[in-house]
Design a protein around this nucleic acid. Structure first.
Length: 467
RNA sequence: GGCGGGGUAGCCAAGUGGUAAGGCAGGGCUCUGCAAAAGCCUCAUCCGUCGGUUCGAUUCCGACCCUCGCCUCCA
C-alpha cells in the first residue's frame, strides 16, 4: 500500500519512496526543542505529529532512524543563564530532562539519536569552513560569519525552495537585531556569532574567533553528519519553513553540492480556546499544567492526534474532557475483548487494519483513521452485547487493535488496581449485595466514589474504575 | 503590502461532481435491586455569502465577507 505525504518542496501530495536502494532504511530528522523552558502544548503538537510519522513509517515496514536535535545554546538560553547566574549545562539539563519525561508521558517513541548543538561544535565549524572556502560565506568586520544569499544564488542555487519569496515586497528588516548590521545584505544570516560580553562563559574558540553557532547551522551540521548529505525526511512546525528550513537547505546544499532532503513535512500550529496561545490570555498550557488538572499524557496525545496535521487545530479544555470520554469508550471495549479472549492467540482481523492503514497512508488522515476505530468499537460492542462474538474472533479483534495501536500509541488505560485499604470495602459491598442489604451496598458505593473510584456491577461481578 | 491556510451540527472534526464519516455533549431506550464516565439507538434537507458552469455543486469557476498564519532565531 502506497504511503502518500504532502511535501512542502512540491506543495503537493507525493508517494513516499526512500532513498535506500533496498527501499528499507529511512532517515528522518525532526527539529527538536530549544531547552530554555518547559515545552507548551503547541510544541507538543509538533512532536506528537513527528512521532506519528515515525510510527506510520515503521508500520509500513521501514527501518527508521529518527533524529531529534536538542538546541542547547541560543539567545534566550544565554540570557537566562546570565540572569540566574548558573551554567549552561546546568540550566539546559533540567529542561532537557523535563522535555524527555513529557515526551514519554505523551507516548512518543524515543528518537534514536538526540544530538545536542553544544556537542557538535567541530562539525558546525567544519561546515562553516566549507562554506567560506566555496565563497558562499564571509566574515564581517565585527567578526561574525554570515551566509551570503547573493553568492549562493550566484553559484546557481535556488534560494526559496520551500516558499515563494519576493524580497522586494517583504517587510524586511523590521525584526532584524541591531547587532547584525554588519551583514552585507539584509537577507544574509549568521553562521557564527562573534563573542560579546553578555555571552559570559558561553563561547567556543574557532578559526573565525571566539563565538557561538548561529541557529540554522546546527541542524545542517547534525543532520548531515548523522544521516548523510542527503536524507529522506525532515519535519518541523510550519513556522520553521522560513527562514530556518530554507536556510538549512541553503547551507547544506551550498556546502555539499547535493540535494539536502527529499521530503519536507510541516505541522500546523494550534489555537487554544480559539485564540493564539499566550501567557497573558491564560490559555498557555504546558503538559504539566494539564496533568495538574487531572488529565493524563495519553488523553492529551489523543486530543493532539484528533485533527489533520496540516490544519490549524483548536485545542480546548472541553475537547480534552471529550478526549477522556472517547478513550474510555475504546478502553472499555478492549477490556471486554480481553476478558472474552482470555489469552487466546489469533492473527489480526484484516478488515480493521486495512481500513485504518488506508486512511493514514493518505497523508495521515487521522480523522478517517479514528473513524475506522470507532466504527469497529461499535460493531464489536454490538456483537458483545448479543453474545455472538466467538472467542477466536475476540482474539483476532484484539490482535488487530494491538497492531493499529502501535501507530496510535495510546497504549492501554492504566490498570485500576484497587488500593488495599479499599479491598475490604469492596468485599463488604459484595456480601451486602448478596444479602440484599442495598442500603449498605449503596453507602459503600458513595464512599468509594468520594475517594475517586466508580464501581460497576455486571453479571460477572464488580468492576472498579478510577474516576 | 507580499505569500499561504481556513470557514461543515451546541463543541471538535473528516469527506465527496450524485445528495453529508467519526468523537464529545444532548435526547430516547436497554441491562440493573437502584445505578453507572456500561451498552444500543437517535441527533446537519444541509456544508460563510452572492453569482456562474452542470441533468445535478457543499465539492469546479468568479466575486465578496469573516478568520488564522508566515514575511529573519517562534513548534
Amino acid at each position: 500500500m502506497a504511503l502518500n505525504l504532502f511535501n512542502t518542496l512540491s506543495r503537493s501530495v507525493q508517494t513516499f519512496a526512500p532513498l535506500d536502494p533496498h527501499g528499507l532504511k529511512v532517515g528522518m530528522y525532526c527539529c527538536g526543542p530549544t531547552v530554555y523552558d518547559y515545552a507548551h502544548i503547541g510544541n507538543w503538537r509538533t512532536f506528537v505529529f513527528a512521532d506519528l510519522v515515525r510510527r506510520l513509517l515503521e508500520f509500513n515496514g521501514y527501518q527508521v532512524t529518527h533524529v531529534m536535535n536538542i538546541t542547547d545554546v541560543e539567545d534566550k538560553i544565554i540570557k537566562r543563564v546570565r540572569e540566574q547566574a548558573t551554567t549552561l549545562p546546568l540550566f539546559t539539563g533540567q529542561y532537557e530532562t523535563a522535555f524527555l519525561d513529557d515526551l514519554r508521558a505523551l507516548g512518543c517513541r524515543e528518537p534514536h539519536q538526540k544530538p545536542r548543538a553544544t556537542e557538535h561544535i567541530p562539525q558546525i565549524i567544519a561546515l562553516i569552513e566549507k562554506l567560506l572556502a566555496r565563497g558562499i560565506a564571509y566574515q564581517a568586520p565585527d567578526g561574525s560569519v554570515y551566509f551570503s544569499i547573493d553568492k549562493y544564488r550566484g553559484c546557481g542555487y535556488l534560494y526559496g525552495q520551500l516558499l515563494k519569496l519576493n524580497f522586494d515586497e517583504m517587510r524586511a528588516g523590521e525584526r532584524v537585531k541591531s547587532d547584525e548590521y554588519a551583514k552585507e545584505s539584509i537577507a544574509d544570516f549568521a553562521l557564527w556569532k562573534t563573542r560579546v560580553p553578555e555571552d559570559g562563559s558561553v563561547y567556543w574558540p574557532s578559526p573565525f574567533g571566539d563565538g557561538r553557532p548561529g541557529w540554522h547551522i546546527e541542524c545542517s551540521a547534525m543532520s548531515t553528519s548523522i544521516l548523510g548529505d542527503t536524507f529522506d525526511l525532515h519535519l518541523g512546525g510550519e513556522d520553521l519553513v522560513f527562514p530556518h528550513h530554507e536556510d538549512e537547505i541553503a547551507q547544506s546544499e551550498g556546502a555539499t553540492g547535493k540535494p539536502f532532503v527529499k521530503f519536507w513535512l510541516h505541522g500546523a500550529h494550534l489555537l487554544v480556546e480559539g485564540k493564539k496561545m499566550s501567557k497573558s490570555l491564560g490559555n498557555y498550557f504546558t503538559l504539566r499544567d494539564l496533568q495538574a488538572k487531572g488529565y493524563t499524557g495519553r488523553e492529551v496525545r489523543y486530543l493532539l492526534l484528533s485533527a489533520h496535521y496540516r490544519e490549524t487545530f483548536n485545542f480546548t479544555l472541553e475537547g480534552l474532557a471529550g478526549a477522556k470520554s472517547a478513550l474510555a469508550r475504546i478502553d472499555e471495549c478492549v477490556a471486554k475483548l480481553r476478558e472474552l479472549a482470555a489469552g487466546t492467540v489469533a492473527s489480526p482481523d484484516a478488515e480493521l487494519v486495512t481500513a485504518f492503514q488506508a486512511a493514514l497512508n493518505e497523508d495521515l488522515n487521522i480523522s478517517a483513521a479514528w473513524g475506522t476505530v470507532f466504527e469497529w468499537v461499535r460493531r464489536t460492542n454490538r456483537a458483545l452485547a448479543e453474545n455472538s462474538l466467538l472467542v477466536a474472533e475476540a482474539a483476532s479483534a484484539l490482535a488487530a487493535w494491538e497492531k493499529i495501536n502501535a501507530v496510535l500509541g495510546i497504549g492501554l488505560a492504566a490498570e485500576a488496581e484497587a488500593p488495599p485499604e479499599l479491598t475490604a470495602l469492596i468485599i463488604e459491598r459484595q456480601n451486602a449485595r448478596k444479602n440484599k442489604d442495598f442500603k449498605r451496598s449503596d453507602e459503600i458505593r458513595d464512599q468509594l466514589k468520594a475517594q475517586g473510584w466508580v464501581i460497576e456491577d455486571s453479571p460477572k461481578g464488580q468492576r472498579l474504575k478510577k474516576l
